[in-house]
Amino acid sequence: MKPLVLTLRHEPQQRLDLSPLVPDRLIRRTAKEIEALDIGTTRIALKVGDMFKVRLGDANSIRFEGGSERFDQVGAKMLAGGAIHVEGDVGAQAGRAMAGGKLTIAGNAGPFAASALAGGEVEIGGDVGDFLGGPLAGEIPGMAGGRVIVRGNAGARAGDRLRRGVIIIEGDAGEDVGSRLIAGTMIVLGAIEGRPGYLMKRGTIALAQTPELGPTFVDCGAFHFGFARVYARSLAAESRGAARLLGQKLRRYAGDTAVYGKGEILTPA
């Protein structure tokens, strides 16, 4: 069945809250009902119908034709079984607290993409802003499950307070990737800046390029890790680069010993 298509009429004049436009909230709704949903965030009221041309289809799969840096909270709290595709850019908090389903963004995403993700898959074709997967101000854990793949570059502090799940950044990562990591797995194929794994407690950060690590990360030698091979097999379809990195002999740096110190940074040996 064809997806439900929302075609952007023109560049929005204000930031949009697109969190109502998820499959579980649109299923069995008429085009008129969908067009009447509120998506504005300022004093000027804004309905879906003002911004999008709605073409009904199987609401389990939603397609945005056209995107904008002002599209906030796309796919937020999506449940398992849903799918959203954005043919364009999105703004902040894309896939925020998603429980399941699949969100694909062809363009770039803003800050806090996949923030506090709990399940499902998020794939971003372009770059992402700061705090990929991270918690919002005041929240304690960040991403708690699911899988995120960024084909481009990520901003600062990607994977902040990651607790469970896998984040793959195929391009470069900004400053302090994997900061305050609680657990989980991060993979960066490009260059990195700053202090990777700053204050990480547990978890794994695999880096294709060997960075300068501070004295709180301690060299534990190079091995063929069994778990890395299992991950390599599982991730091969989605990211061949990640699979290649994990399939090889890896040097293990344990840390961050400034805190709990049960985490690790893995780099090609």
Binding site: G165, F223, F225, F227, S234
Partner: peptide, 24 residues
């Protein structure tokens, strides 16, 4: 307490440090 839990695709794996590397 040196063991490490890894979850992948809904399955949990334990990495247990042993003298030839890790027992998964």
């Amino acid at each position: 307490r040196w063991q490490i839990s890894k979850r992948l695709n809904g399955r949990r794996y334990w990495r247990i440090p042993v003298m030839d590397g890790e027992f998964l």
